[in-house]
Amino acid sequence: MGSVPNQIQERPSAAPKMARPVRRGFMALLRNPRARTRLIVTLIVFLISLMFVFPLYWMLVLSTHTLQEVSAFPPPLLFGTALGDNLSRLLEAFSPLQAIWNSLLVAVPKTLGLVLISALAGYGFSRYARLTTAQWLLSAVLATLFFPPSLGLIPFFLEMKVFGWLNTFLPLIIPAMASAFGVIWMNTYISAAIPRELYEAAELDGAGPMTTFWRVVLPIIRPGLSALAVWTFIGTWNDFQIPLIILNDADKFTMPLALTTLSAMRSSDTPAIMLGTALGILPVFLIFAFLSRQFISGLTSGAVKS
């Protein structure tokens, strides 16, 4: 029985033995030029990512603190307990759910319509690219990209007034479905992704132009459609100029307009403004995550077999 403590005392520690292989592996990693370069690039990318992520994190942190805590120095870096009070003050200024719903009523139909129309137009220009008329029309569409949108702002307002569409969501949806950028994007994507042999094979099978589009072209161009949808949705969600001149009722304000109203009413209430901004960008993150999964599935499912 007396030898047991001695054996326990004489047992060597396992920590140094475990640390030596780790240290040797790290030193071997530093001696490898390629691995060292990868490590440096990874650290640089991590630091750059941290620069972009930290403002979003700090916005969430400030939305959970009181105004006194936000104004203190050094500023808080961890979450607080004043989220409920900030939310109550935010609801006194405007309804975030109503603003989010209004933005969705504009962004979702516009995105769906723009993506569909751009895909059909891009498909037509790509399939009949050899026709002189198609080349002239595509050049005309491309030329419209050189005109700034603000140049037609006054004629657009007068036109919507003649239609009786002021203070409605229609001017934000229907005219915007015709996008020169979307047509050029889909035409370029379809021309690169769909070989002409695929059109000829579909014609031999008896498929017409629209059948070829829905059953052959559409499954292959889903990555391009997803990218255009993400771009359109985010741009529509953040649009401020057109809703500002079209919408008058506060109940119809989209999220950017509602946040501007909040800033005007509570310019010094930083926690409430940060909370409203966080609620405003939350749907964008959710939609982006959903369309990102669609984008990956499109890359794996759509392919041309030679």
Rank of each mutant, 00 (worst) to 15 (best):
R24V: 08
S191Y: 02
S126I: 04
V284Q: 10
D85P: 01
V22Y: 08
L198S: 03
F240G: 06
I221Q: 00
A193Y: 00
L225W: 00
M186Y: 01
L39T: 12
Q135N: 14
L30A: 13
Q9W: 14
L299R: 11
F26M: 14
L97A: 15
V162C: 01
I184C: 03
A35D: 10
T232Y: 01
F94E: 00
A129H: 12
T277K: 00
L279W: 09
E197Y: 05
L259P: 00
G182K: 00
A72L: 09
I154K: 04
A72Q: 15
F169N: 04
A107H: 02
A264N: 13
V217H: 01
E197K: 08
G25L: 12
R11S: 10
G302T: 07
M186A: 03
A202G: 06
A250I: 11
S191I: 00
E69L: 05
L204C: 11
G80K: 05
S301M: 13
L291A: 06
G152A: 12
A19P: 00
S297V: 07
P74A: 04
A227N: 05
T42I: 08
V70D: 06
G224D: 05
A15C: 05
L83D: 01
N187A: 12
I287M: 15
A201T: 11
K17G: 10
V61R: 02
P76R: 06
L170T: 11
W237M: 02
F26E: 12
L198G: 02
T132D: 12
Y123W: 13
Q7C: 05
R11D: 04
P76L: 06
N167P: 10
I242P: 00
M255K: 01
G182S: 04
L116W: 07
T64D: 07
L259V: 02
I48T: 14
K110V: 06
A193Q: 14
S268R: 13
N248V: 12
K305P: 02
T188Q: 12
A99H: 01
H65Y: 08
F73S: 12
S301E: 15
V53A: 15
T42L: 15
